[in-house]
Design a protein around this nucleic acid. Structure first.
Lengths: 189, 189
DNA sequence: CTAAACATACCGCACGGTATCTTTCTTTCG
DNA sequence: CGAAAGAAAGATACCGTGCGGTATGTTTAG
C-alpha cells in the first residue's frame, strides 16, 4: 500500500492523459514540428518506451489526440444545441461558439495549435471530414440554409486567421467578428 | 556555341524556376512532407549541390517559393481591382476570385497544397500577415466594411474546406459558394 | 582567366521504431 | 490470507534511415 491514496507508483490512465496534454502543449509552444516522440515522452515524465507502450506509433498518438479532441467538441456542441431555445441555426451557433470560445476547440487552448496538423495529415483530414459531414447531415433541417453555411465558413476563416497570426490572446477584432456571426444566425429566422 | 539557342548547357534562371515549380508540384502530389531538398533537386534535373547554389537553405527555397507566389497574387489582384467598374468591394471581389479561380492562388493549382505550410511555418506566416495587412490598409476605404470582411473570412473558410478535403477538382457546392460570396459584395452598395 | 553554375562525396544528427530487461500491479490458487 | 504467477507499465539501450547541410572538385559562361 502506498503512502497515501494520491501518490501511487504507477497510474497509467494519468500518464496517458499527460502524454496527450503535453503533446498538445508542445504543439502550441514549439510548433507542430516540435512534437517529437522524445519531447512528448520527456514532457510527460516518461521515456520513449513508456510512450510506445500506450501508443503503438507516433501516428497513433496523434490520432488518439485528435480523436479525444473531437469527442470533447462533440459533447460541447451537443450540450449547446440542447440548451439553445431557438431551433434554426442552433448547430451553427454552437459551432461558432466552439471555435471562438470553446473549451475544447477554441482559441487560447492548447488544442488550437494542434488542430493545424489536420490540414497536413491525410488520416486526420478523414477523421475531421467524417465528423463534420455526419454533423451537417444530422442538423440539415435546422442548419441547412446557405446563409448559415456562410457563417460557418466565416468562422473557419476566423480560426485560420487566428492561427496564422500566432497570437495567444484573442484580439478585439475577432471578438466583434464572433458577435457578428452569432447575430447573423438570427436574421430572417 | 550550343547546338541551338533553345538548348543551352546551363540556364540558371530556368533552373531556378524549375526548382520552384517542381517544389510546388511535389507538395501537391506527395504532400508537404514530401518536399525534400533531394526530391526537389532531382525533379528539377539537378543535384542537391545545384539547388544549394541557388538557395542557401531549404528555408530560403520555401520562402522564395512563397514570395514568388505572393508576387503573382499581387499582380493578379491589382489587375482585377483595376478592371472592376464598381469601387466598393473591388478588393474583396478580387480576393475571392483569386482564392477560388485564381491562376496563382486558386484551387487546382500546384500552389494550393503549398499554401498549407503557411499555417505551420512561422516565417511564412509573417510574410503572409504583412502582405494581407498592407493590402487591407490600402483598400480600407473601399473594402473596410464589416460585411465585406465576413465575405473574405468565408472565402478563407472555403479555402480551408477545400484543402482539408484534399480534392483536386472544385465541387459544385464550392462553385455556388463562390457565386454567393461575389453577390454578397454588391449588396447595400 | 575568373567567376558562376553545377556535380560528387561525405557528414552529423535527430528521428521513429524495436528489442529486451526491470519494476509494479492484479489475479489466482493453495 | 499469503505467495506465486502473470500481465501490465515503464526503463534502457540500440538501430536504420533519411534528412539538411558542407566541402570540394569539375565544367561552363563571360
Amino acid at each position: 500500500m502506498p503512502e497515501n491514496r494520491y501518490t501511487r507508483a504507477k497510474q497509467p490512465e494519468q500518464v496517458r492523459r499527460a502524454l496527450l496534454d503535453q503533446a498538445a502543449a508542445i504543439a502550441m509552444d514549439h510548433g507542430v514540428a516540435g512534437v517529437t516522440v522524445q519531447a512528448v515522452a520527456a514532457a510527460a515524465g516518461v521515456t520513449k518506451g513508456g510512450l510506445f507502450h500506450h501508443f503503438g506509433s507516433k501516428q497513433a498518438l496523434i490520432e488518439g489526440l485528435f480523436a479525444d479532441l473531437l469527442a470533447r467538441v462533440d459533447a460541447e456542441i451537443d450540450a449547446a444545441v440542447e440548451a439553445d431555445p431557438k431551433q434554426r441555426g442552433s448547430f451553427t451557433r454552437a459551432y461558432v461558439n466552439a471555435v471562438f470560445t470553446g473549451k475544447a476547440f477554441g482559441f487560447a487552448t492548447p488544442w488550437a495549435a494542434l488542430s493545424m496538423v489536420v490540414v497536413t495529415d491525410p488520416p486526420l483530414r478523414r477523421l475531421w471530414n467524417d465528423w463534420i459531414k455526419a454533423r451537417l447531415k444530422r442538423h440539415r433541417t435546422t442548419d441547412g440554409a446557405p446563409d448559415l453555411q456562410m457563417v460557418r465558413l466565416a468562422a473557419d476563416g476566423a480560426w485560420l486567421s487566428y492561427v496564422t497570426t500566432g497570437q495567444t490572446r484573442m484580439s478585439a477584432e475577432l471578438r466583434t467578428v464572433h458577435a457578428r456571426l452569432l447575430a447573423q444566425t438570427y436574421r430572417r429566422g
